[in-house]
C-alpha cells in the first residue's frame, strides 16, 4: 500500500515536472499576447486585493498588539516597528499572501480550467489547431506569477500600517522612534528574501492550480477534487518551500 502511494506520488511529481517544462516553452509565445496576461493579472490579482488588504491589516494589528506586549517586558517598545516590518517582509507577507492566493485565486483557476476541460473547450481549441497550453494555461500561469509578488508587497505595506495603528496611535509609541528604527533595521537583504519567497510561492501556486485544472477528470466530482487538491498541495508546498528558502537566506 505504501508502495502504491509512493509510486503514485513519484508519478505525479514527474508528470508535474514535464507539464512545467511544456508550459514554460509555451510561455514565450504567450508573451506575444500581453492582453491575455493582463486580463489574468486582473482576474487573479486585482480581484484578490480586498481579501489581501483586509488580512494584511489585521495581521499587522495583531503583530502590533502581541509585539507591544512582548517588547514592553524588556522595555524596548520602540523597536516594534522593526519587529513588525521584518516579520511582515520576510515571513508573514509572502506566506500568508500565498496561502490566501491559493485559496482565493488558485481554486478559481483550477475550477475554471477544469470546467473548460469538462465542456470540451480545450479539445475544441486543439481541433482548431490552437494549443490550449499557450492560449489558456500560459497566460494564467504568468498572470499569477506576476500577481503574487505585487500582492505580497501590498500585504506588507498594509500590515505595517496596521502595526503602526496599534503601536503608535493606540499604545502611544513615539512615531519618530517607530519609523526611524524601522528604517534603520530593514535592509535590502530582507526585502530580497521576501521578494524571492513571493516569487517562488507564486510559481508554485500557479503551477499547482493550472496543472490540477488542466489534468482534472472531466466530471463534476473530478473538478471538485482537483480544486481541493490545489488548496492542499499549494499550502503544503508553500510552507515547505518557506523553510527551504529561509534556511538558504540565513
Amino acid at each position: 500500500m505504501t508502495n502504491g502511494y509512493m509510486g503514485e506520488g513519484i508519478r505525479r511529481l514527474g508528470a508535474t515536472a514535464i507539464f512545467l517544462g511544456r508550459l514554460a516553452l509555451q510561455c514565450v509565445p504567450a508573451c506575444a499576447r500581453p492582453r491575455l496576461i493582463v486580463a489574468q493579472i486582473y482576474n487573479t490579482g486585482a480581484r484578490s486585493l480586498i481579501i489581501i488588504m483586509l488580512s494584511g491589516l489585521f495581521v499587522g494589528m495583531v503583530l502590533g498588539l502581541q509585539g507591544y506586549d512582548l517588547l514592553r517586558r524588556f522595555g524596548s517598545e520602540d523597536v516594534l516597528g522593526t519587529a513588525a516590518a521584518l516579520g511582515l517582509l520576510r515571513e508573514l507577507g509572502p506566506v500568508i499572501t500565498a496561502l490566501l492566493f491559493a485559496g482565493r485565486a488558485g481554486t478559481a483557476l483550477t475550477s475554471e480550467i477544469g470546467l473548460m476541460r469538462a465542456t470540451d473547450q480545450l479539445t475544441a481549441m486543439e481541433i482548431m489547431a490552437v494549443d490550449p497550453l499557450r492560449y489558456v494555461a500560459a497566460p494564467r500561469f504568468l498572470g499569477a506569477i506576476i500577481a503574487v509578488p505585487l500582492l505580497t508587497a501590498i500585504f506588507a505595506i498594509v500590515g505595517l500600517f496596521g502595526a503602526q495603528l496599534i503601536g503608535v496611535q493606540l499604545m502611544g509609541i513615539d512615531p519618530g522612534a517607530f519609523w526611524s528604527q524601522t528604517q534603520d533595521a530593514v535592509e535590502l537583504r530582507d526585502v530580497r528574501e521576501g521578494l524571492t519567497k513571493s516569487l517562488v510561492f507564486g510559481i508554485a501556486c500557479a503551477l499547482v492550480a493550472v496543472y490540477e485544472g488542466y489534468n482534472s477528470e472531466p466530471t463534476a466530482a473530478g473538478v471538485g477534487l482537483a480544486t481541493t487538491r490545489t488548496v492542499v498541495a499549494s499550502s503544503v508546498l508553500i510552507l515547505l518551500l518557506d523553510y527551504v528558502i529561509t534556511a538558504a537566506f540565513l
Partner: peptide
Amino acid sequence: RRRMGMLFQNGALLTDLTVFENVAFP
C-alpha cells in the same frame, strides 16, 4: 487540423468570449 472543422456535441464554445469573438477566434 487547420484544414478540418469539428462540431462538438455541446458546441464547446469558449464561455468567456461573446458569440462574435468565438467565431472570430480561429
